[in-house]
Simulated assay, not measured.
Amino acid sequence: MPKDIQRIDKQSEIITDKIKNVIREIEQSDEDLKVVAFMEHTSPPETIKPKIIKFHKVLELLRLLADDNPIEKGVAKVMFQSPTTGRAKGLTPTMMAGFQYLKPGSKTQPHSHNMASIYLVVRGKGYSIIGGKKVEWENGDVFVVPANLPHYHVNTSDTESILFDVTDSGLLESLGILEFKEESENNT
């Protein structure tokens, strides 16, 4: 299991009794206030290792998940993370990547999140409603979903549609501010 960043508190090396008293007075002015007089040191993160994700195995997984998905009929989503990113939960400390799979005629549930996403259409044809705007896509197209815009994806082809996306969710997860919201189609 990955560990969070190891923090080393160096305050004790510079804090005298006189400074402690002033800090205590400041902290007592509010019940939810803590003074940090010296930024702590952090240990360097583990090295992120190169990796390859074999598409044929991912495709097998996506098809199995879409066949049996009671939450979003005909849809599957998989994301990838590297345990060495620790709390970032991404493939790198700032980015996460994954695939979305849509059977013919299926669509994802409307949602929004504060991460931005860049999509590559690996296979298929369809459209996305992004912030109320219809964006049509097909094989090889790239489209962007800006942060906080409600959106969903629809497969209009007779075959499966597969979208590959990269997001900045690793960065937002590290900052502790990653958010997801379900939306209604009226809000998209």
Rank of each mutant, 00 (worst) to 15 (best):
M1E: 01
Q6W: 02
Q6H: 11
K10W: 07
K10T: 13
S12C: 03
N21L: 12
I23C: 03
R24S: 14
E25S: 08
I26A: 12
Q28P: 00
D32Y: 10
D32C: 09
V36Y: 09
F38V: 10
F38L: 15
F38M: 15
T42C: 05
E46W: 06
T47Y: 05
K49I: 12
H56R: 14
K57H: 15
E60W: 13
E60N: 13
R63E: 15
A66T: 04
P70L: 15
I71G: 07
E72F: 10
K73H: 10
A76V: 09
M79V: 13
T85V: 06
T85D: 01
G90K: 03
L91T: 15
L91M: 14
L91Y: 03
M95V: 12
F99P: 07
S117V: 06
S117Y: 03
L120T: 05
G124K: 00
Y127E: 03
S128R: 02
S128P: 01
E136Q: 00
W137L: 02
W137C: 00
N139C: 02
G140L: 07
P146G: 08
Y152K: 08
N155A: 07
T156A: 02
S157V: 04
I162S: 05
F164I: 09
G170V: 07
L171P: 00
L175P: 00
